[in-house]
Design a protein around this nucleic acid. Structure first.
Lengths: 367, 367
DNA sequence: CCGAAATTGTTTAGTGGTTGAATTATTTGG
DNA sequence: CCAAATAATTCAACCACTAAACAATTTCGG
């Protein structure tokens, strides 16, 4: 652990002591043994302590979950109902009720909910205001205030974010880039036990930071962009609107007022109509992303995940042709690892991530 | 200064003392007076001390400059000659000679060159190897090694980067995002001298971090992307290849092997042929960027800068139609502030930036 | 079965950057 | 000329971290 962080063993000891005392870490018994020497103590994130409430509202369902520090889903509630015909205030009240149940269930399980995040299919301003969510029929909805009106959620910090952004965060956790997840138990690389090199053989403090585009095919098409392990939200929080990237400049008119948007060729409605250009259109739009941003991985989520194999070849053909650097290094295409829960899981993960990044803030809260 | 950084006045004093002792700052006499109280001391970056060597190689010229800590160009040498017909080694030797002259002139002027950066019109790998520069006819050229063969540059740290990336950095300095440039002399906002609020009225440590896309129209079209005040280079350093973003999927064949690339409609050759679609093609490609990344500003550089006004309306029309959020907040379009020297200036600036970001490293060097 | 080597974890004194409060210096404005 | 305001310095105290010694516990070789 000291080698991985670049800190002294003494420092690590002190910090770990704090985290154990604060209830964020627990010592566990059986560490895997690696060779000679005194065996290391096992450490694990607590499954009691801080937890996060992940919320999602979408065209045809509401969902809430509670995730603990380890990333395990501890509670999960969902409700299927068409939100398009419902008044936003009612939708949010129903979601609030779901969230309240999830929170109470979690707290009676020893967890303390540190905060909540809500995933919505629309444009969210920096202050959390939902500017427009076309498929829900929302416009300028203050979802945070609405949720805060539920008594059980009154004091809770709540954030709102775009559905694709949060789903991308969910994938980030699974795909790697999160050292606490894809590393094994503390105790450095088991392979390197020999005298292969002294201290400094591994660059200390270095963590592989992944970059990828998550693209979510729903009624609309959204994208979440992770650059160097961090979600990029854009200056106003409106990044990732890949559904309205122009694919055919003089193509079909789109409800956004433009023509030839990707959504017209690869949105869920086009897919259900058997659109033959879907894969090609996706490939054209994605090649623009790769040319511009040099992202090495593209994750297909939402409605694209189940039909991944049928899209793959068509997309890859366009990427090969249209990405300038495709000859130097290919782009990896893969289906989303998380299913329909991706956005809700990612929402909870956003909160957990904040606690992980600054555990001291969580410990200070006990004042 | 203490208020701006969030540090104590005592700490600032100590730090400033170090920088003055190390020759990075000098005390200057006349600070502008703001109201009652003892007047503040003036501080300015030294115009002696560390400096940076900015180098550029392009199709028809070589250039080298030396920039000091304040951002002033202290030396500038350029040489016009067609590099397409020249052997890469010869081009680099000629550039090295130019660089050597610039360095010697600067050092006899009291400056110490801290490092050099080279701008090339091509793809540069993370280690500085120029993978391919189509318009120079380069492939896998180790420019750093070649420059290091010049005796006067032997020990100097040298980096290589894409021309558009560095030009974007140059624009960043001019456009803002660099507190040391766009703030006035130390001594906080002169307007706020009244009792408008105690300490903490200004969020300490906050600096406006700009995001924009710089697009450079040369023979090829490149782009440099600045997100939150930082240049985004992409995972492999190959971001910004906007010239090969598809604009018309079944359009003109491009020398990259694809069809309908932006370069075919808005590259310098197309412009010179009076291509009527140039502005529209640019607008289509740029709308994709804005939809994906939500950048609020686009800077047109290279060959686009002088004809900015003739392109503006055509580009803006496409942006209005194709950018989903154009109704919520318009995208600002503006011509590059720096001229043909943008990339070279940006190159030097990249080095200066490194010294500014970690002045302690520069001070340690004196051991 | 013993001892050497290896590895983990703790203890201790020391260091450097920072804070906070007190002090001094120098101006404006009534 | 004095009060209020602002700028800068000094100094003791603090905190996170380091470095080095030490203690604990294992494997491995005879």
């Amino acid at each position: 652990m000291a080698a991985a962080t670049g800190l002294t063993r003494a420092t690590v000891s002190a910090l770990v002591d704090d985290l154990v005392a604060g209830g964020l870490l627990v010592e566990v018994d059986p560490p895997p043994r690696t060779g000679a020497g005194r065996p290391a103590l096992g450490l694990a994130l607590t499954s009691t302590g801080p937890a996060a409430l992940g919320l999602e509202i979408n065209v045809d369902y509401l969902a809430a979950c509670v995730v603990d520090l380890t990333g395990t889903v501890r509670q999960r509630f969902a409700e299927h109902a068409d939100q398009r015909l419902t008044d936003p205030a009612r939708s949010l009240a129903a979601l609030g009720a779901l969230a309240a149940r999830a929170r109470l269930a979690a707290e009676s399980d020893g967890l303390t909910v540190a905060g909540a995040a809500l995933a919505v299919p629309g444009l969210v301003a920096g202050d959390g205001l939902v500017r427009v969510a076309p498929n829900l029929g929302w416009q300028n909805i203050d979802a945070i205030a609405a949720l805060h009106r539920v008594p059980e959620l009154a004091g809770l910090p709540i954030t709102v974010d775009n559905e694709a952004n949060l789903a991308a965060l969910g994938e980030l956790r699974v795909a790697g880039g999160d050292p606490a997840v894809n590393r094994s138990q503390p105790g450095i690389e088991p392979g390197g036990s020999g005298p292969s090199g002294g201290a400094g053989a591994v660059r200390p403090g270095h963590v592989e930071r992944s970059s990828f585009l998550y693209i979510s095919g729903e009624i609309g098409i959204g994208a979440g962009l992770v650059l160097d392990g961090e979600l990029y939200r854009g200056v106003r929080g409106w990044s990732g609107e890949i559904g309205h990237v122009t694919v055919y400049p003089d193509g079909r008119p789109c409800r956004c007022g433009s023509r030839g948007c990707l959504e017209q060729y690869a949105g869920q409605e086009a897919l259900e109509a058997g659109e033959p250009l879907a894969a090609a259109a996706l490939g054209i739009a994605l090649s623009a992303v790769v040319n511009l941003l040099d992202v090495p991985v593209i994750v297909l989520g939402g409605a694209y995940a189940p039909i991944f194999e049928s899209l793959r070849e068509g997309i890859e053909a366009e990427l090969r042709q249209r990405v300038l650097t495709s000859g130097l290094a290919p782009v990896e295409l893969r289906p989303a690892a998380l299913g329909a829960d991706a956005a809700m899981r990612g929402a909870a993960d956003a909160i957990i991530r904040a606690v992980r990044e600054d555990p001291a803030a969580w410990l200070r809260r006990l004042s």
